[in-house]
Amino acid sequence: MLSAYIPLLVFLAIVLAFGVGITAASNLLGPRHPTKAKGLPYECGIVPSASARRRFAVTFYLTAMLFIVFDVEAVFLYPWAVLLRSTLHLFGLIEMLVFIALLAVGLAYVWRKGALEWD
């Protein structure tokens, strides 16, 4: 029933008001004496050497790609998990075991290829 979701909208409004309220309060209250040194990013006391907008290790990117692949596969597990007990039974079990086997083969492949290594 869609009406069960109405409280969520109300709660979303409350949470938004909370976030905006605290942010606004913290912007308005408190002293403000900006100096040049205060505006520098923290780097243990030395003057920052270069911009922080720089390249980063490709492994992070790789992790994100692997995450998308495996997480989408995890999504397929939920409807199956809900229905297995009541409707799917043995047929659904075998179907999903094949799917999970493919998932495991994918993981093994990624593992062998060294995509999970950080060096």
Binding site: P41, E43, P48, S51, A52, R53, F60, T63, F67
Partner: peptide, 19 residues
């Protein structure tokens, strides 16, 4: 934040959280 510590922390954190 445009700070190197923040960027490194954020990168680590996102990779960790999604994993």
């Amino acid at each position: 934040s445009n700070s190197k510590y923040s960027l490194l922390g954020a990168l680590r954190s996102s990779a960790q959280l999604i994993s």
